[in-house]
Design a protein around this nucleic acid. Structure first.
Lengths: 168, 168
DNA sequence: AGAAACCCTACCAACCCTATAGGGTTTTAT
DNA sequence: ATAAAACCCTATAGGGTTGGTAGGGTTTCT
């Protein structure tokens, strides 16, 4: 998995919106200014995030963008998959599974790819926007080795009309 | 990190050479035929692997390519870094470290990137060609959940004239 | 009404990916 | 010696992706 410049912009914009959660809609211009992102490019990104129902827009004067769910219910994996595709280093999880089953000669290699994919997924599925914004309450010198693991977190519901279903 | 088609070809070719380790040099044509790879493209890849001192060539009639080290001393990370670059999902390890130190606003995000990179590195640094070729002695139905972890393995020495040193 | 703000499509330059082509050079076998 | 085998190296090229820019259309608030 590779995170592009565009993917980084998306994550930064989402972090900014998470910081201002429940403070009303924020203009593209303000997001772009605060995060130092190209405004028109950001507009395209926010449009994608809106179509994926991660953010919502408010039109007209005083309009802008805001998160559709609390930051604790938006996983980094969701954003990255949307913008940059599957987490697997080669193909996607389904494809790898099928290769593991069919290509006997190289199955051990594809299994390693799958291991890498699973490791990345484990991290990115369990980290939400809430985990990476406003870490005021976290000691500065503290290593995140253990990481406060909020496994009691509520899983985000599957939206019925969700576009682009893909396993990886 | 993203593994390209070229990277996959490289890994397949190396697996093939590992299977025939200590059986003399093998012609590009034979590697290409056995692994079903485009011959001239494979030639470029092997040239890169040779310049990186991972394989060596034997010229003239009866020539071909062979591994310079036993398969157990060639890590997958080495091949992947050579062909497809850093393991980190964004930038490389050094760059991420510097961003974590300098960009206070997004350091938590970059730390997650670094976690992903470390997870991938852990797997790919510890898996060698020997681990993924000829798994005859492994039961077919067996899941590799635990994976025979050969940590007593000797670390490959650093070659002095090694071109292209990069941390990630 | 009018301005603010999102919505959407098109376009574009640069770069990368995946090769292909073809001759040059070195070495071996006879 | 000599021819053939085989690697060595550079050049080229089409197609796709990346990272944007441009500009007008549409909706909604005040």
């Amino acid at each position: 998995m590779k995170i592009s410049q565009k993917g980084l912009y998306a994550l930064q914009a989402m972090m900014m919106l998470a910081r201002h959660y429940n403070q009303g809609a924020i203009r593209i211009r303000d997001i772009a200014y605060e995060e130092v992102l190209p405004e028109k490019f950001l507009e395209l990104i926010l449009l994608e995030l809106k179509n994926a129902r991660i953010v919502e827009s408010v039109r007209g004067a005083k309009g802008g963008y805001q998160l559709r769910r609390p930051p604790s219910e938006i996983r980094l994996s969701e954003i990255i998959r949307l913008i940059d595709g599957p987490l697997a280093p080669f193909g996607d999880a389904e494809q790898l599974r099928s290769l593991i089953d069919s290509d006997l000669e190289h199955r051990a290699l594809y299994k390693v790819f799958m291991e890498v994919r699973n490791a990345a997924a484990k991290i990115l599925e369990h980290t939400t926007l809430a985990d990476i914004v406003n870490p005021k309450f976290v000691k500065t010198g503290k290593r995140l080795g253990k990481k406060t693991h909020e496994d009691a977190r509520v899983l985000p519901m599957v939206v019925p009309g969700n576009p682009r279903r893909r396993e990886d």
